[in-house]
Design a binder for these strands. Structure first.
Length: 362
DNA sequence: AGCTAATTGTG
DNA sequence: ACAATTAGC
C-alpha cells in the first residue's frame, strides 16, 4: 500500500458550491438574486486568481493500460444508436460552442422555444461528461460584450445549473424528498399503467409522446418539452416527481444529479423558487404554440405523419371517416389520450387545494 | 418558464 | 360580437 496525497478542487461549475451566500450567511432560495450574486462573484475572481493544477507526471502513468473499453462497455450494444446523434469528443464540444456563439446565440431567446429548430447549443451532454467547461462557455459569451437579451437568456441557463448545485449543497435532503415539506402530504397517484405510457411515449398527447420518444432514442430532450412532459407526469397524471427523476436519470446523456433533482422539484412546485403548482401546461396549447406545423411531433411519432396541422396536437378530434381516409385510427394506430386535459387539470388543482392551507401559513 | 374564466374595452 | 386585459388558481 502506498499513500497518495490529494486535494479537492471544484468540478464543472463556475463557483465552489458553498461560495454563494446572502449577506447574512444563509443560502439563496430565489434564483434571480442568486445568479446576480454568483455571476459577480465569478467575475471578480477572473482571470488569473484561479490557480492552475499542476500535472503530476509520475501519477499520470499509474492507470495507463488499466482500463479497457471493451471491459466497461455494456454487453448488449443498446448504446450504439447514440452514435447517430452525438460525437462524444472535446473537439466536437468546442466546435458546437463556436458554431452556436457565432451563428445562433442572437436568436436563442426566440428559437429556443421551438423544438423542431436547432435553437439551443446542444452542449449539455458535453458539460456533463467533462468535455467542455462551463467557465469556458460563460467566458465565450461574455467576450461578445453585449447586453443582448438572447445572450443573457443563454447564460441564465448556466445560472440555473449553478443554482441547482448550490441548492443541493445546502439542502442535501432534497436528494431524498421534497424541499417544501408540505408536499409530503400531497396525494400522489400510484398508477404503473400511466407511468409506463408516459415512459414509452404512449399518452395520446402528441407533444408529450414526441418528447419521451426523443429522450429514449437520443438520450436528450429539448428543454421546453422537458417542462411539458414533466408537468404532464406530475400534474395531469399526479405521479410523484421521483418517478420522473428516476426515468430521466436512466435515459439522459446529460444527466446530472443536482440539475435533475432540483429541476424536477421545480416542475412539481415543491422546490426552491419553483413553478407554482397551479401553473399547469396544457399539452395541446403548448404543441400549437411551439410546434404549429407538427414537424417535431411527426419526427418522433411517425404514426401521425399524415395528420394535418389543424389536428396534429389533438388527433382524437378528427372525424372517424377522416381517420379512416388517412389510415390513422386513433385508439388503434395511436392511443386515445390516457386522461382528459380539462378533468386532469381540475383534479390536479383540487389535489393541490388539499395541501394549500399549510403553504399559506408558512 | 401557464391557463382559463371573468371583466373591461371597442365598434 | 369580438378582442384585449386581468384575477385567480
Amino acid at each position: 500500500m502506498r499513500n497518495i496525497d490529494f486535494k479537492f478542487f471544484k468540478g464543472n461549475v463556475l463557483n465552489e458550491y458553498n461560495k454563494i451566500k446572502k449577506n447574512d450567511g444563509t443560502p439563496f432560495k430565489v434564483y434571480s438574486p442568486f445568479w446576480r450574486n454568483a455571476e459577480q462573484f465569478y467575475l471578480e475572481r477572473l482571470p488569473d486568481k484561479i490557480s492552475k493544477v499542476k500535472k503530476c507526471k509520475k501519477i499520470n502513468t499509474l492507470f495507463k493500460n488499466q482500463i479497457k473499453s471493451e471491459e466497461i462497455l455494456p454487453k448488449s450494444d443498446w448504446y450504439k444508436k447514440f452514435e447517430k446523434y452525438w460525437v462524444p469528443s472535446e473537439q466536437k464540444a468546442h466546435e458546437n460552442l463556436d458554431n452556436f456563439v457565432n451563428k445562433s446565440i442572437l436568436n436563442y431567446g426566440v428559437d429556443r422555444d421551438f423544438p423542431s429548430i436547432k435553437g439551443t447549443s446542444l452542449l449539455s451532454p458535453y458539460i456533463r461528461n467533462g468535455q467542455i467547461n462551463v467557465g469556458d462557455i460563460w467566458q465565450k459569451c461574455k467576450k461578445l460584450k453585449s447586453n443582448n437579451v438572447s445572450i443573457k437568456k443563454y447564460t441564465n441557463e448556466i445560472g440555473w445549473r449553478e443554482f441547482s448545485h448550490s441548492l443541493i449543497n445546502y439542502f442535501p435532503q432534497m436528494l431524498k424528498g421534497n424541499l417544501r415539506k408540505e408536499f409530503d402530504k400531497f396525494p400522489w397517484v400510484n398508477n404503473s399503467k400511466f407511468l409506463n405510457a408516459w415512459k414509452k411515449g404512449m399518452t395520446g398527447y402528441p407533444i408529450v409522446d414526441a418528447g419521451m420518444r426523443e429522450l429514449y432514442e437520443t438520450g436528450w430532450m429539448h428543454n421546453r418539452i422537458r417542462m411539458v412532459v414533466g408537468s404532464f407526469l406530475v400534474k395531469h397524471l399526479r405521479i410523484n416527481w421521483k418517478e420522473g427523476e428516476k426515468h430521466f436519470r436512466n435515459c439522459l446523456l446529460d444527466f446530472n444529479e443536482a440539475n435533475n433533482v432540483a429541476q424536477w422539484q421545480w416542475v412539481a412546485g415543491c422546490g426552491a423558487d419553483a413553478a407554482p403548482y397551479f401553473r399547469i401546461f396544457n399539452p395541446i396549447l403548448q404543441g400549437e404554440k411551439f410546434d404549429k406545423q407538427g414537424d417535431y411531433v411527426k419526427k418522433w411519432v411517425p404514426e401521425l405523419s399524415k395528420v394535418p396541422p389543424k389536428f396534429i396536437h389533438k388527433p382524437w378530434e378528427m372525424e372517424k371517416k377522416y381517420q379512416e381516409a388517412i389510415n390513422t385510427i386513433i385508439g388503434s394506430n395511436y392511443p386515445m389520450p390516457i386522461v382528459i386535459h380539462e378533468k386532469a387539470r381540475a383534479d390536479a388543482l383540487s389535489a393541490f387545494q388539499s395541501i394549500k392551507k399549510k403553504i399559506s401559513h408558512q
